[in-house]
């Protein structure tokens, strides 16, 4: 199941790259780099989430910052 998910994620990511690449031909290097980095990051994150669904993320940082105010609402 895990490998199936990873395969699915890879397939989706590959599809995104394949879809965008022809249009990026005329674009600058910066654009290509952005797309590759963003998609790569997406792939990495997705795979990590498959292995560690409970992985702490930026949401937890936000929660930690605003918790004191949030507690007021919980009252």
């Amino acid at each position: 199941m895990i490998w199936g998910s990873i395969l699915g994620i890879t397939f989706v990511v590959a599809l995104i790259i394949l879809y965008e690449w022809p249009k990026l031909k005329q674009g600058s290097k910066k654009e290509k780099a952005t797309v590759v980095v963003l998609t790569g990051a997406g792939w990495l994150l997705a795979v990590l989430l498959v292995f560690f669904p409970e992985m702490p993320g930026p949401t937890d940082v936000i929660k930690a910052i605003f918790q004191p105010l949030g507690r007021y609402m919980e009252k």
Partner: peptide, 15 residues
Amino acid sequence: NLYFRKLTNILLCIC
């Protein structure tokens, strides 16, 4: 470029 376009087209059809 052409090869890519063909490949994407085939993939899109499968999709």
